[in-house]
Amino acid sequence: MYDEEVIYDSRRLVPPEEHTRPTTERPWVRRTLIGIAVVFMGLVLVLPLLLVFVEAFRKGAETYFAAFSDRNSQSAITLTLLVAAIAVPLNLVFGVAAAWCVAKYEFWGKSFLITLIDLPFSVSPVVSGMVYVLLFGAQSALGPILKANHIEIIFAVPGIVLATIFVTFPFIARELIPLMEDQGSVDEEAALSLGATGWQTFTRVTLPNIKWGLLYGVLLCNARAMGEFGAVSVVSGHIRGKTTTMPLDIEILYNEYNFTAAFAIASLLAMLALVTLVFKTILEFRFGDELAGTRRH
């Protein structure tokens, strides 16, 4: 595919004699750089991942699978799926709308708007949870009204959903904005001039153009939604079997000295991360050109 043409194959393109093309480096430099990259990534990324699986299987496959039959862990998995199923579609709709409005139009204060969309990205997860406690907690102005109407937000599922939405807020929008900016509006203008309605233009022209970027955004958003710890920890109340998500369940198991089970649940999330990444790599492999522009976060 495309990398065959773009990337210099060290075995194929470099002539056998001690001559190096002017646009690449000497073999020893190349090897050193590859070595540095591999060692660095090994120390920082690969080993932690490996450790999760080693610890999860430390006491054998039986103990590993036993961890998933625990009632509380099962309810944590269900809750995590539920939260992601609510948070991701909401952020998806928002992401498309925001990207449309940012990419297709020029208006004053655009950088400011993008920064606001980015903001949850850099807000400490602890703060993300805290803002909802301050807003909906019993001590807030809204607290007594909510209580009088028997509406539970924090320390219940809605609060966990809100915190998750906050944390994963920018993911899809951030994925789509550069992609749609690169693509410009020519296709849409053509469709409109041929008499298509706005909605038709969006579903038949824009959506097919951005579908892979969109999917990638959804995958990352979903992985992050399922894995969020700090923010959810603040709003959850940690009621076992009721308001604990998978990352919180991992913490509880770890705190009960049940390390194997903790790492088993963690391996499930790591697997999710891996599946996400494999899926993404397949997408890139098949739709490399379309996705090339989307790699900016």
């Binding site: 609510i86 579609p89 539970e152 937000i153 579903t203």
Partner: peptide
């Protein structure tokens, strides 16, 4: 793509229900 729209609408509905309807049982 109508299907997508329907799924999106459904997702929104589910979310709205979950957000507002969490009355203490």
């Amino acid at each position: 793509m109508k299907k997508t729209a329907r799924i999106l609408a459904l997702g929104g509905l589910v979310a709205a229900l979950a957000l507002t309807g969490a009355v203490t049982a």
